[in-house]
Design a binder for these strands. Structure first.
Lengths: 249, 249
DNA sequence: ACTTGTGAAACAATTCACAGCA
DNA sequence: TGCTGTGAATTGTTTCACAAGT
């Protein structure tokens, strides 16, 4: 247990561990070792232990981790215990997809409202029955319905303006699908998702791969452990970079 | 110009620079300094210069970078010059959103086919007129239509199986919306997008923020440069972690 | 015997600071 | 003078390797 600053990548990995723990719990598994869990998440077991060690000592030496308590601990660390309300800005295809995505309710996220600046979207009824609200309603919704998270899914020219409005209204975390980096105050967190940037990075890897057929780098990596893969080929370790990262793009 | 391995985060940033260069070019701007460009991308100017220095010397001392040539150079580095064909697996809401997303054609990505394992989706005609194909067609499509990139947007239980099929068919880069980490050979690249994991990381930041009102860390960061922001509050530097890096989740 | 927790070591990425050139 | 390019310094992250606990 240290007081060092926790790497952003560690937080992303905690979420990944949490998802696997949910599945283990559902499967009736009681105890899991760092070895086991790490192999599922495609990380080094030492990394998993180090990630947890930033927050406490949750395991039993010689045994492993109790699945249900570790799940609870990680959920508490992330702050994902009660329901969190989210608003969506921009009534386009991405918003439609998010509303229909089953992962959000499963993880405790609830979409409270859909807003838009575009006059011709306001008042429209979406598939799930929600009605698109004007931006005027923003402050009221945020304040009265306990909303701290927002998704920006508007054309890029509007994203900075929308970001400013969200900040002004009291939003504390923003997930943006707009490709441009917007300015937000230090106490507001922001994450970006840009599909095409991630494809670019795949494209880069592919072209590189063609350039140097059997590269030394890949061969060196291939010698590393595979942490429990039952596959016939050597397996890449996701160093969770590009992070988008999580990265985030 | 060094031969060191290029950080994955650098590649993500190159894509970001490329997007801003496109906008500058469209706006008729001829020359840009690392200072200018970096402030738009929300990174340190030294970082931008270092990122470029992995690949060559593209600027003129005392002047800056020629927008159009730098744009070309970066596009060439990323390999995003001609059209790249992509297939989509899984005919759900995410696929629908991707098909309607304007960013893909703009960046040279073309969706060649939509496939699904689910019997009841096969044969369906999508909004844009594409017909959902069975997985049997996979190998043929990949081979005959010069496809190296694929998107996985299927329920998580199926994602490993789909991944194996894609690899088998010759796909070299995968963008997966499935929350579980799948195993792929070393010569295949994979990037993950998980919306809920990114929200979790925002949630974590929010709960932390509440715990320590005026944290030393934030104050220390606040003293750092703002690189050209015209905003009234100190601005966070996206260290492009979580990655998502770029993160990818 | 087995697995955690963690300092220390190794490795990686970012930022500084300035030489070098237009 | 002004801005790039880059070694060196700094900062951050991952992995190793083993002590400690059950």
């Amino acid at each position: 247990m240290k007081k060092t600053n926790v790497p952003a990548a560690t937080i992303i990995r905690l979420s990944v561990y949490q998802r696997y723990l949910k599945r283990l719990l559902a499967g009736g598994v009681k105890v899991v070792s760092s070895q086991d869990l790490a192999s599922q998440a495609n990380v080094n077991p030492a990394q998993l232990r180090k990630d947890l060690s930033y927050f406490g000592r949750f395991g039993v030496r010689g045994v492993g981790y109790c699945v249900s308590t570790l799940l609870q601990k990680i959920s508490a660390i992330l702050g994902v215990i009660e329901q969190r309300n989210v608003i969506l800005v921009g009534a386009g295809p991405i918003t439609q997809a998010l509303l229909r995505h089953p992962g959000f309710p499963q993880q405790g996220y609830h979409f409270e409202a859909v807003l838009d600046v575009d006059e011709k979207n306001i008042g429209k009824t979406l598939e799930n029955g929600m009605v698109v609200q004007p931006m005027d309603s923003l402050k009221e919704i945020v304040e009265e319905r306990n909303v701290e998270l927002a998704v920006i899914a508007v054309p890029l020219e509007q994203s900075q303006k929308i970001g400013d409005m969200l900040v002004e209204a009291g939003i504390k975390g923003i997930l943006s699908f707009s490709p441009n980096r917007i300015k937000v105050p230090l106490n507001v967190s922001i994450q970006y998702i840009d599909f095409t940037i991630l494809l670019d990075s795949l494209t880069y890897n592919i072209s590189r791969g063609r350039k140097k057929k059997t590269t030394e780098v890949l061969e060196k990596k291939a010698q590393k452990l595979k942490w429990g893969s039952e596959h016939s080929w050597p397996v890449v370790q996701s160093n969770s970079k590009g992070y988008n990262a999580g990265l985030s793009t």
